[in-house]
């Protein structure tokens, strides 16, 4: 009996969202009085044993290069090997792109109840109930898992990463490879040097009020000063002012940052469906009647072309740069 956490990597670097899932799994193991182990697939830039500093005893490592592209079926087979070797009772993933592709397969294979998008540790005082976000951030549900084996995916930015010490974990190699993967990756395009939107702690987002793509420099400066990711509303993406992968909202990306700064966005309900899970929202808009102010924590009414550069300046002062 143990907790197993799947730790996702990209170009050898462990993802922030995966470290959150790792810390969630370690805290859960402590809560239910068992050990936590991790499973990693593909080449790592650092030593897999270093994951011990987050509190896992053992790391199951599928080292094959073939894992560097994600095939859900091949990943499932490798993770299943680690599940069996560690006799895992709870398997934890991040609710990121990889977790969403693989966790349901693992759950179906093990006939394990799945809670996707957990926002807190399970309540194990009477059964095993996990709190998750539902209705696109408009509510929470407490979901009891009734099967003996359980699978949880953890919403990004809902659990704090905790390094517990400097221990090294024992590393055990997995036999599995992805040599027979049925999905072949032809081309991979990664956005370089930017903070991934779903993992960002701060998101700066622009809407139609920005008046045109040529004006985005002030938002880029603001985002840069906060080490934030850039996002936009649907009309902005539809008008091709900004790329579609920056579109947040019901049909775009759902984000859950600590801070969401909406600039020149009126706050249609479809946009709110993508940003409701943000902890703190700042709205900057020239229209005092914009519906977004009702959902905001802080609001500024005025000309964004004057406000945004001043805000950036004040943030730089705070950060001493």
């Amino acid at each position: 009996m143990s907790v197993l956490i799947f730790v996702d990597q990209a170009e050898g670097q462990i993802r922030k969202a995966s470290l959150e899932a790792l810390s969630y799994g370690v805290a859960l193991a402590k809560q239910i009085g068992t050990t936590a182990n991790a499973v990693v697939l593909g080449n790592l830039a650092k030593n897999a044993a270093d994951l011990g500093s987050y509190g896992v005893s053992k790391v199951y490592h599928g080292e094959s290069d073939t894992f560097n592209t994600m095939d859900a079926q091949a990943y499932t087979n490798a993770i299943m090997e680690a599940v069996q070797k560690s006799n895992a009772e709870v398997i934890v993933f991040s609710h990121n792109q990889t977790g969403r592709a693989v966790a349901p397969r693992i759950a179906a294979k093990l006939k394990a109840g799945l809670v996707a998008g957990a926002v807190a540790l399970p309540d194990t005082s009477n059964g095993f109930a996990v709190r998750k976000s539902v209705f696109s951030g408009k509510a929470f549900a407490n979901v009891a898992i009734t099967s003996p084996v359980k699978v949880i995916t953890v919403n990004p930015n809902s659990f704090r990463i905790a390094e517990t010490g400097s221990e090294t974990a024992q590393v055990e190699k997995l036999d599995a490879t992805a040599d027979n993967a049925k999905v072949k990756a032809a081309t991979v395009n990664k956005v370089q040097g930017e903070v991934p939107l779903t993992e960002a702690e701060i998101v700066v987002s622009g809407g139609r009020g920005m008046k045109g793509p040529e004006n985005w420099g002030i938002l880029e400066d603001l985002a840069h000063s906060l080490h934030a990711a850039l996002a936009c509303s649907r009309p902005v993406a539809d008008a091709h002012w900004r790329p579609h992968h920056e579109h947040v909202g019901q049909t775009g990306i759902q984000v859950s940052p600590n801070l969401y700064i909406a600039v020149g966005i009126s706050g249609a309900i479809q946009h709110l469906a993508g940003v409701n899970r943000s902890k703190v929202m700042v709205v900057i808009n020239k229209d005092a009647e914009a519906p977004f102010f009702k959902a905001a924590d802080y609001g500024v009414v005025g000309d964004l072309f004057e406000i945004v550069p001043k805000l950036t300046e004040e943030i730089k002062k705070l950060k001493g740069v």
């Binding site: 990209a10 990889t98 999905v183 990664k190 992968h245």
Partner: peptide
């Protein structure tokens, strides 16, 4: 869509 980008796959 993959983490931080996109990928073209043949299946």
């Amino acid at each position: 869509e993959i983490e931080g980008g996109e990928e073209v796959d043949e299946v």
